[in-house]
Each structure stands twice: as C-alpha cells, then as structure tokens.
C-alpha cells in the first residue's frame, strides 16, 4: 500500500467521511503548501496533550478549570447534566442557558457494559451535596438509555433537597408536524403544557 493509499484509508475512518471525500482530501493535502500541512499536523499531534477535561465539570478545556466553571457571572446554583462534552456546545449555542454543566460521559446501559459507576455520577452527587446547587437539569437524550440515566439520577438526588428537572422534548421549532417522527410526536403529546394568554 502506498503512502497516499494509507492516508486515504485513515481519513475515511473519520466520522462523516466516505472513501470518496477521503480521497479528495488526500489529494488536496498533496497539493497544499508545506506550511499548511505542517500546521495541521502539529495541531492534530498536540490535540490530546493540550486539551484535557475540566476538573469540575468534565468539559474539554485547555486550562485546569474550563471557561464556564470559572466564569463568576454564570449562575452556579444551576447544573445541567449532559451525556457528552459536545452537548455543552449545542446548549451554549442557544445562548439561553447561563448555569453550569456536568458531563456524565455516557449513559447507563448494562448491555454495552456501562454501569452507573463507570459514569461521572459520584462527582455530580458530591457537587450537589456541597450545598450551593438549587436545581439539576437532566439533559440526557430522549432514548431508552437516556431515560434510564435520568431516572437513576432523579432517584439518587431525590433526598438531596434540590429541584430535579428533565429537558422537555418536542417538535423542532419551525418544524412541520407532518415531518416529526411518530415517537417525537407521541412524546410531545405526553409532555404537553397548558397554554394561556
């Protein structure tokens, strides 16, 4: 196998890239100038050594404590528990949330060998036990495993005195009822809220 073929093979392992796109990228790199390639290679090489998990919430960060946890203007009495660091990005992009986060690192699924003790759950209980927290928002995905994890946390936190809420699920805004999948529609029917004006 040639160097080029090996590169294409590795690139096509990246999420969302098929062999065709991987080939295009490989040829692009072949024709790109040396500085660009060196820079890119350096960035990939240094990724894991310069980025680590936040000591408090588990988010990706370049400092010991991430920008969200160390921001004094955020509401530190409100914790949103998410499955993965990527979920923080998604929620941050809404600019609607000014609390802090907690990354669980996955969902409970014994079939896949993931048990509560494999997740960042004890640390969440410890944070809540410190007394400054008023509400925990459970933002796991609306899947069977996401529900299991949310229920598990709700039970675990029930004696702590904090309010525990679950992210509402429903029809995407601007979405057409006709195109919402059946399960989403059924869920949003169950979780419907009163409307007043």
């Amino acid at each position: 196998m040639t160097v080029l073929e090996r590169l294409i093979q590795n690139l096509s392992r990246l999420p969302g890239l098929g062999r065709k796109s991987a080939t295009r990228i490989a040829y692009f790199l072949l024709n790109a100038d040396d500085a660009f390639n060196k820079n890119l290679a350096g960035q990939i090489e240094g990724l894991k050594s310069s980025i680590r998990r936040c000591r408090v919430c588990g988010n990706y960060t370049e400092t010991e404590i991430c920008g969200i946890c160390s921001n004094p203007s955020r509401d530190h009495s409100l914790i949103c528990a998410v499955e993965q660091p990527q979920d923080i990005l998604t929620i941050e992009a809404t600019h609607e949330y000014d609390g802090i986060f907690h990354v669980l690192g996955g969902v409970i699924s014994p079939i896949d060998g993931v048990r509560p003790e494999d997740l960042n759950i004890q640390e969440l209980v410890r944070r809540v036990g410190q007394g400054d927290i008023k509400e925990v928002i459970l933002a796991t995905n609306p899947t069977v495993e996401g529900d299991t994890t949310a229920l598990y946390l709700a039970k675990l936190l029930s004696s702590s005195g904090v309010t525990v809420t679950r992210l509402a699920t429903g029809i995407p805004a601007g979405g057409d009822l006709e195109y919402a999948d059946r399960t989403t529609l059924a869920r949003s029917l169950r979780g419907r809220t009163p409307l007043s004006y």
Partner: peptide
C-alpha cells in the same frame, strides 16, 4: 438499576 427499569 432494577428499580429504574421496573418504572420504565
């Protein structure tokens, strides 16, 4: 976990 799965 069984307590949780029972509910679900």
């Amino acid at each position: 976990l069984l307590d949780i799965y029972d509910v679900q």
